[in-house]
Amino acid sequence: MCDEVTEQKVDITTSVMSKNDRFAEDNRELLSGKGIYTLNLISSPGAGKTTVLESMARFFGPRMAVIEGDIQTRRDAERIEKAGCQAWQIETGGACHLDAHAVNHALGHMNLDPDALELLAIENVGNLICPSGYDLGEDMRIGLLSVPEGDDKILKYPSLFSSINVLVINKMDLIPHLDFDVDRAIEECRSLNPDVLVFTVSAKTGEGMEEFCDFVESSFSTTA
């Protein structure tokens, strides 16, 4: 790495994310080698990531496995297991995001049987800022925004919303009670990110979840 040493100055020219990116490539190679399609689900705390995943767990059953990232507790993994999927909990112990190394470690503990598994969903730590810079080796990055958070959040957190493949707007059942302009949110997300696909759902009532799960399924069926 150390190319040129002058008397005092040492050239380094190394991307700070290079170690993470190497692990991300390893994860991608391992998972795609087994025919497993991987999602990285990012949102603020309380937007409904785990409820969306519970709903997906009921749709996909044992064909899906979940890695849960939280600062502390196994609560989310227990919810996913109850809904019918294998779950592995990463407790970051303070870190505000998952990195590819932590995911790589988790993969080493999971049963990645290629005959049974088709989909791996990684639930990132609830945070709209820090996870955006870390490639975990996913095939699809999903940003989840919930109606109570407000329709102005997309432009406030551009580094995340410019990097996602899919925007899921959750808690649509609350639309009648709140001033959330769905068209504005979608338009602002498309301005940052012209290729983004958008789904509107309520994981609680199930509204829109079947369409979303069908879309996820078609994504891994076409790449398999």
Binding site: K9, I12, T13, T14, S15, V16, G133, S159
Partner: peptide, 11 residues
């Protein structure tokens, strides 16, 4: 625009 590198150090 997403780059982040350590370029060099001076001892």
């Amino acid at each position: 625009g997403r780059e982040f590198t350590v370029d060099s150090v001076e001892l």
